[in-house]
Amino acid sequence: MAAKPRGSLLTSAIVQDAGIAEGRLQSRARRRRQLGKLPSIIGTLPMIVVAVGVFVIGLSFTVVLSFTSSKLFPTFNFVGWYQYERLWATARWVESVKHIWFYGAGQIGLSLVLGFLLAVFMDQRIRGEDTFRTIFLYPFALSAIITGLVWQLMLDPIWGLQAAVRSWGWTDFKFAPLASGETALIGMIVASTWNGVGVTMAILLAGLRGVDSEIWNATRVDGIPRWRTYLWIVLPMMRGTVATAVILLLVGVVRTFDIVIAMTGGGPGISTQMPATYVIDSINARNVGHGMAAATCMLLPILALILLQVAFRARANRRATAR
């Protein structure tokens, strides 16, 4: 019994010694492991620069400038919410925002409905699926500038579709939306849907094909009509796919710029001006502070979208852990 304290002292000393050695080995290994990551950090330096330099610092720069009175060059003369107050008092900006809502709702709605219809019809084990797919998708390979120019001709009141149909004898046919400020946006919706609906179709078709084939078998045994299966069973199961399609469409809508320039140049009047054209015009007009306020406003719906997604994911996680 008496020898025990000494014994344990000795052992603890050895353990301590081993502990030190172990600790040293560990820290050396840690250092080596960190060193091993060095090439990875060097290799991704461009990514670090882009992520931090452009997407963090660049964006912050935009937001900061929106609170200054910058003209052509950035100044840091802070003017509070002045630029925003002026922005929302400018008729052209307010109109642009109304336009983007109308255009966005129209284009996304039309693309989803037409895209889903096309996907469903493509899913009927048709002959020549690849040919149809090529036809529906090729416009997407063309730039928005080309799309805009072609549809400008198609919708030209004197030489376009309207004139052609009239020359076939249907003399009171009317479809020349670009001629009037009230309908010009509709023409743009048609053109951009032509350009992009193929992608929506392809995404939704992939979603359709991803549905468990046993679900289809079950509905056939249950004798559920096919159209009803698509609408009430398959479509709700494809929520994720539809969300993907909507997000892609939405991002495209917020950016809308090229097609406006090519198709209408913003006219007639200001009837097809968009926030994106407003920002670029403000920069060109050497009114950077004002333009950056507009740009920051453009960022808001995207931020809302991301927050929404974060919230959805958090909810899904909570549900998963609750079970």
């Binding site: 452009v54 997407f55 610092i57 660049g58 964006l59 720069f61 935009t62 400038l65 991002v251 917020v254 950016r255 710029f257 926030p275 994106a276 920002v279 670029i280 920069i283 950077v288 333009g291 950056m292 740009a295 920051t296 453009m298 960022l299 995207i302």
Partner: peptide, 8 residues
């Protein structure tokens, strides 16, 4: 949106 980053 690209336009947001154009000026920076």
């Amino acid at each position: 949106p690209y336009q947001v980053l154009v000026y920076p």
